[in-house]
Every structure is written in C-alpha cells, then in structure tokens.
Design a protein around this nucleic acid. Sequence first.
DNA 1: AAATTAATTTAGGCATACCTAAATTATATA
DNA 2: TATATAATTTAGGTATGCCTAAATTAATTT
Lengths: 219, 219
Amino acid sequence: MLTQAAEDYLKSIYKLQEKVGKVSTGILAEYLKVKPASATGMIKKLKTMKLVRHERYQGVTLTDAGKAIALEVIRHHRLLELYLFKALGVPWDGVHEEAEKLEHVISEDVEARMDEFLGYPTADPHGAPIPDKNGVVTKTASVPMTDLCSGQSCIVAEVSDTDSAMLRHLGSFNLYPGTAFRVIEVAPFEGPYTIDVAGQQVIIGREVAKHIFVEDVEG
Amino acid sequence: MLTQAAEDYLKSIYKLQEKVGKVSTGILAEYLKVKPASATGMIKKLKTMKLVRHERYQGVTLTDAGKAIALEVIRHHRLLELYLFKALGVPWDGVHEEAEKLEHVISEDVEARMDEFLGYPTADPHGAPIPDKNGVVTKTASVPMTDLCSGQSCIVAEVSDTDSAMLRHLGSFNLYPGTAFRVIEVAPFEGPYTIDVAGQQVIIGREVAKHIFVEDVEG
DNA sequence: AAATTAATTTAGGCATACCTAAATTATATA
DNA sequence: TATATAATTTAGGTATGCCTAAATTAATTT
C-alpha cells in the first residue's frame, strides 16, 4: 500500500502533466506546497517503485503503473465530491477539501456503492470527468467562456475547483455544470460579460470567465 | 490537531476503562497491537498534553479533556458505522473496519449531515450507544444472553463488534439489535441455547451467546 | 527473605516525510 | 564566452511513531 503523500504526488503529476505538459520538480513542489528538495526525495522513491520516469533536471513522467494509480486516486476524489454534494448536501465549494482527506482511506467496496448510488456518473460537481473503474477518462470537448461572442448560447461544462470563493460566487448565479446561458453582450477592452441565465441578467468579470468552460455553443 | 495514533490511544483507553476498569500499559499495548514500550511513549506524550493521568506502574486514566476527545472519536466511529450500514448498505460485519479509517478524517460538518440523515440515532448497527454532540452517552440496561432461562423472551440490545465472522453468523439468523426472540431450551452443562427468532428455530452455542446482550427480558 | 517471574520504563535505532542551507547543473543574458 | 540567474540535487537536521534489547521496578512464589 502506498502512503498518502505518495498518492498525492502521483495525482499531482498527472494533473500537471495535463495542464502544463512537462512536469518539473519545482512546479510539482510549488503545486504541493512543499520545498523542491522534498519533491526530489519523493520522486526518487517513486522511481524505485517504477511509478515514474525521471532523469535529473528533465522533469517527471508517470509510467503506466503510476498513471493507473493516479487515475484511481482521481476517481476516488471526484466520486467522493459528487457523493458529498448529492447525498449529503455539502455545498460545492466545500467538497474538494473534504474529498482531499477521504480519497486516501475510502475502500473499493464503499466506492463501488457510492458509484451505484450515483448511477455511475461521468462528471463531478465541477464538471471534471470521473475516470471509470478501468481508468478510462471520457471528457467532453469544451472551450473557455472567454471564446464566446455576443448572442451565443451554450451550456456550462466545467469550472475550476481550486478557489472556493469563486465557486460560491458562481453558485450564487446558478452557474453549475449543465446550466444553459446566453451572452447578451461582451464589453470591449477585456471587459465583463453580460449574460442571461434562466431569465436573470448577470454580469461576469473577465477573470471569472476564464474559470468557466462551456460546451454546445450555438448562434 | 491530534495525530491519528493519539486519537486511537484515547479511544482505546476509554473503552478499556469501561471494560476492565484499570488500564495498564500492557493491556493497552496488547489492545492496540503495539509493544508496551510504544504505549509508554505515547502515554507520556498524552500526559504532557494533559489528556491522561499517569503514575509509573499505576496505569492510565483519562482527564476530562482526554475523555471528551475519546468520546468525540467514538461518536465519529459509531455514526459512520451506522451511516455506512443504512445509507450505503455495507454489511454490518464490514462497517467497523471502514469506520476505523474514516473516523479520523471526517469533518464536523459532514458528521452533522450524516447525523441529520440518520435522524439523530442513539445506537450503532451493533447496538453500541452513540455519544451525542456534547459527549453524553445514554446506554440501555442490558444483560448477557447467558443470563437467560428457558421460556424467557427478550430483544437483542447489543452484540460485540470485534469478530466479523461472528457478526456474519449472527446476521444469518437475523440477530440484529432490535430483534426479538424467545428461549425454547437451555441445554445443561454449558450447552447451547435453542431459541425462536421470528418463528424460526435456531441453535446458539454458549460462546456465541456470551457476545449477545439483551433487554426487555420477560417470562 | 530470597529468588523468580511479570510488568514497565529507558535507551538506542529505523523509516517516513518534512525542512533549510549549500552545492551543483542548466539556462539566459550581456 | 563569461557571468548571472534559475532549477535541481545533495547533505544534514527535525519530529512522529514504530521497533528491539536491556534495565529497572513490582508482584509472586518458595
């Protein structure tokens, strides 16, 4: 059995690999709020376990075995988020923190029961894809809201889950994944978006819009 | 925040205090599957935190602060057991092990939500009392099944949760807390009990009967 | 009371995972 | 190309919680 820290490293490497491509020791350390020296140590440990590949100064990549574990942890995390949200009514800006602790201790049996209860879902409360039991990720094609023009309609696909104040803000406008809205106007010079959500007119700043990804764009 | 190990020690001291009265280092170590020297170390640590009292060779007792934490952990554990059992259908011989890991990472918020979902219950799936938010324990008066005589009727109040094979065995007869049964015959010379559970005749060995506690004895 | 046995404590070690500080290697700039 | 800066690694140290082995204290037996 892997340690909790090791699991967090694998998960983080996977996420960073998706986001920034190459994963350096420094990037990884910053992401995990740890000093680079600590990251070096864990990387060496993971390498002896054949979970990552690593050449000095060249960054880390996951092996197939490492990727499988990373996806398993991510699956635990996202299923837990959705379960806490749907079954226990934990607000969506709180589920990330809770799941962060639970993901390492939940058993496969309990996970399977939650999965069944939720009807084998494919996305967490923020719209991020939930890998299936075999580690297969099916993610929908989405674009940043900042790509939209006046008059276009779409559906919220995903929002970034890192900032809980941002999530509360979006929640207050009902901008959950699955919610439809139409762009009424895009203010020039990097200005805010005025949109229509279920008949309500809402103003979304450019910085906020960067955190929203949409699909099914029309018009 | 206390470490997981420290919480386990406090919980174990509380349980042993109830079961055997005086808690010696050796008893505690055996219970926690740890060497006595390790128990000594943790006891000293807990003493500096004023969570236990301890005089060399005289055993450990909990301070009020230590008892409060012990009860909080026990509450987490038993609420989790019941939640896993009722909300997710985890079989009752598996909930203990699951809860053992989860009790240390569950937040007060999630606990409160589970408590509400369950309707503020007072007993876990094995019949053990769930302390309330203030650490108040209300336990029903029960007697060991081995005190029963032929012809007496009663209701299962509690079963010991340590042996999961035993729990499966009892479950196969539907001997959950709340289940009523009548003693048909007690075989002499420490022999087995023949009982009637919902019209079915069942034979319960003396060793098994010692693990069952009953209430509302009549007849 | 002396000797044996049991319980407890102390002492010394090990592994994990973190840290800081210094040394090394790589990359960018002048 | 030489130098400065940035990234990475190494070295040495901390704390936790476990271990074994040896020493001490308590309890029991003869």
